[in-house]
Design a protein around this nucleic acid. Structure first.
Length: 739
DNA sequence: GACCTGCTGCGGTTTG
């Protein structure tokens, strides 16, 4: 008999006894002496009610068991009435589904319940078996679920008739993305197909604002969603931020990159670590420098690159070596190692340059210090260009360093970016319109509207907008849909072709790529937009190569080993920084912090921050937000996030002022008085004028190419631009705030 | 100044 320690309450004991026999036996066989508080609470909540539930706990905190022990127990004790799969698990990664299926198979070994993993790498025979006798647990990706709706629309009601809950793993990855909207749409369509609402259980490690998370799961009754969180917290966080400034013109010494490489080599060798380097190019650059340093010092190479363009083999090797933990290894990586695949515990997390979001920083940090009593260690490195008398005033503000400090500050306060509601997501809506029509062999406009916009996630789309969208999709030159004589909407010629191809199922866009072959083996891929030619050398997968041949039709590049090479550029599409991060950057420059010179800064970072604050004051930016630096050049610092800053720079461009980029501080080619008296008041009066020409430039998402400029503008205004913010921003800039 | 995620049906060949 399992003995449970007399913990703070007898809840765990009650929870244990509420479980079915086979599940109790599994727990006992595992040798568990008690249930974690989250698990005990989840068992009570799942068995004692039918509300939606969100379970949050640290990575490896036992969330999967917390959800599945009671759900499986219920499925064993009360066999489903309607037939079909008893439980559905939706996960964002194929690797995660494979992992979780193995765990569930272990739990269900001595029972009748089957486990059906289902994603692109699962054999067709296995899927056929699941369809022939659906039951037990289906573990699936949103895209594979989409494929079931499109290809087997008529079978959906039967497959899920008896499903008692849908478990969504890594819920945070679905909150604020096209893919998240896609999943919500599929869940609503599933509810409609079975004629009742299927309970949802979300699992997540880190979540921002709870209210928004609740309404993701249940937009009609967010208050009924029960939150179960582990007390956890209280974990010690050790942070160091090291600043690197290139030596002066006559100074000698290593470059910043070499100095940072040296520090990583000295501190991380001999243990397991993750270093997030920001871009694939940077990952390859640091991995190459570290490997050469190991060779020069005649020690084994303990640093390997990991990013999304490397082949599955290369990535698996790094993941397996980390997880097994037999030899020391530091992975230099992009956000690939941020998600839930189990790689074990690492000693420290390195971060080169400020990241794009506090949420990502928090997620990355969760990879270290997972054992009781061990701190989470963050080492941040900021590479700062050399300054001279000719340097741009914006460079003097050291905005990278300031952003890094602002983010660490927000992180320690427990803040992270909340999802942004109210977006239209017209590209994803187009996708779902095509999917519903394909799955049902036709649908009326009224039915589509009710399904997708009234009950589904596209609630910001009103009827008029919906009809405009349908007209766009039905235009002869678009031909995605057409109307039959009795008014039913059917797929058009182009629609048929697009839905029939396997690339339809995902809502996100993927660029075309070359495959890179070395000695006949694929080592990774490169976007076709990268400029490459035979004879060029490059660093890839931590080694140096020469391009032997490029096959433009087969999209294959052959490589041979080389002694030279530079890391190649990959295509990228710019990130969005949140308003609160930029506001905190202003606080950092103006010294409005609990600890104005944080202790976690090293001497070089302190010096750089002190100098940046001095320059900020000398520029007289404090309290004004605008300063003329030349006769026809003004700096504008709205301290707003990417969306609001981009809106302002577009409005300035409407006035004929070409503004570069969308950094925290804008350089406007115009005198201060002219800007203050003429341009800004005019923009305040007239707002942002978006022409059809601008609309043509707003093609970002997968189905945008089929939309007219006016719809593209409306889509952008709901997610990438903020017209309403323009007035208040200008008012703040024009207000005399100086002493 | 960026990163990540996903995918079916069918025809052909090999193996037991």
């Amino acid at each position: 008999m399992m003995s449970l320690p007399p913990s703070s309450s007898d809840a765990p004991v009650a929870s244990f006894h509420g479980l079915s026999r086979p599940v109790q036996r599994w727990i006992r066989d595992k040798g568990w002496t008690n249930l974690r508080p989250v698990q005990a609470e989840a068992i009570g909540a799942v068995l004692g009610s039918d509300t939606d539930i969100i379970i949050t706990a640290a990575t490896a905190g036992g969330k999967t068991e917390a959800a599945f022990l009671p759900l499986l127990s219920d499925a064993l004790d009360r066999p489903a009435e309607g037939g079909g799969f008893d439980l559905v698990y939706v996960g964002p990664l194929k690797a995660l589904i494979t992992d979780q299926a193995l765990r569930l198979e272990g739990m269900l070994e001595k029972t009748e319940l089957a486990v059906h993993p289902w994603h692109g790498d699962v054999a067709k025979t296995r899927k056929d078996r699941a369809l022939k006798s659906p039951g037990g647990v289906l573990l699936i990706t949103p895209e594979s679920l989409e494929a079931i709706f499109v290809l087997r629309g008529r079978e959906v009601p039967g497959l899920f008739a008896g499903t008692r809950a849908i478990v969504i793993d890594e819920l945070h990855t679905f909150l604020d993305s096209d893919r998240g909207v896609h999943l919500r749409s599929l869940l609503t369509r599933l509810d409609i197909a079975v004629g009742r609402r299927v309970r949802r259980v979300g699992l997540s490690a880190t979540l921002g604002e709870m209210e928004l998370v609740r309404s993701y799961l249940n937009p009609d009754a967010p208050d009924t969603v029960r939150m179960i969180a582990d007390a956890g917290g209280g974990q010690e966080l050790q942070v160091q931020l090291r600043g690197y400034v290139e030596p002066g013109e006559n100074g000698s010494g290593p470059s910043n990159e070499v100095a940072i490489t040296r520090h990583l080599f000295d501190r991380l060798r001999g243990t397991r670590n993750l270093v997030f380097a920001g871009s694939r190019q940077n990952v390859e650059g640091y991995a190459d420098r570290l490997a050469r340093m190991c060779e020069r010092e005649k020690v084994p190479v303990e640093f390997l690159p990991h990013h999304g363009s490397l082949s599955r083999d290369r990535r698996a090797h790094v993941e397996d070596t980390l997880r097994e933990g037999r030899v020391p290894l530091t992975a230099i990586c992009t956000s690939t190692l941020e998600l839930g695949i189990d790689i074990g515990d690492v000693v420290c997390v390195g971060q080169i340059g400020a990241p794009f979001s506090v949420a990502a920083l928090r997620q990355r940090l969760g990879r270290s210090g997972r054992r009781a009593g061990e701190p989470a260690i963050l080492r941040m490195y900021v590479d700062m260009p050399k300054l001279g008398p000719q340097s741009n005033p914006i460079d003097r503000l050291r905005l990278d360093l300031v952003q890094a400090v602002a983010m660490i500050d927000l992180l320690t306060e427990g803040w992270c970016e909340p999802p942004a509601p109210g977006t239209l997501n017209l590209s994803t809506l187009t996708h779902q319109i095509l999917s519903v029509i394909a799955g049902r062999g036709g649908a009326s406009a009224a039915r589509l509207y009710k399904m997708l916009c009234e009950r589904g996630p596209f609630r910001s789309v009103d009827q008029a907008l919906f009809l405009t969208l349908l007209r766009d999709l039905g235009r002869p030159d678009t031909a995605l849909i057409e109307q039959s004589s009795d008014g039913l909407l059917l797929l058009g010629e182009a629609g048929e072709r697009i839905v029939a191809h396997y690339s339809f199922y995902a809502v996100f866009k993927t660029p075309e790529e070359y495959r890179l072959l070395a000695a006949g083996r694929e080592i990774g891929t490169m976007p076709v937009t990268t400029v490459l030619a035979p004879g060029m050398t490059l660093v890839f997968a931590g080694r140096r190569w020469r391009i032997v041949e490029i096959d433009d039709i087969g999209k294959v590049i052959e490589l041979a080993p080389s002694k030279e090479g530079r890391p190649p550029r990959f295509a990228g599409d710019g990130g969005a920084i949140h308003d609160d991060v930029r506001a905190r950057m202003c606080d950092v420059l103006e010294g409005r912090m609990k600890e104005p010179m944080p202790r976690y800064l090293d001497a070089a970072a302190r010096d750089a921050l002190a100098l940046a604050r001095g320059d900020y004051d000398r520029l007289r930016l404090r309290g004004t937000g605008m300063v003329g630096i030349e006769e026809k050049k003004t700096l504008v610092a709205p301290w707003a996030g990417t969306i609001r800053t981009t809106t302002l720079s577009l409005a300035l461009r409407d006035r004929g002022l070409s503004v570069e980029a969308d950094g925290a501080v804008l350089e406007v080619p115009c005198g201060l008085e002219n800007l203050r008296i003429e341009h800004l008041p005019t923009i305040y009066e007239c707002g942002l004028a978006l022409s059809h020409e601008t609309g043509g430039m707003l093609v970002f998402d997968k189905f945008h190419e089929y939309l007219s400029p006016s719809l593209l503008i409306r889509d952008a205004l709901s997610s990438r631009l903020d017209r309403q913010a323009l007035g208040p921003m200008i008012k703040a800039l024009l207000a005399e705030r100086c002493p």
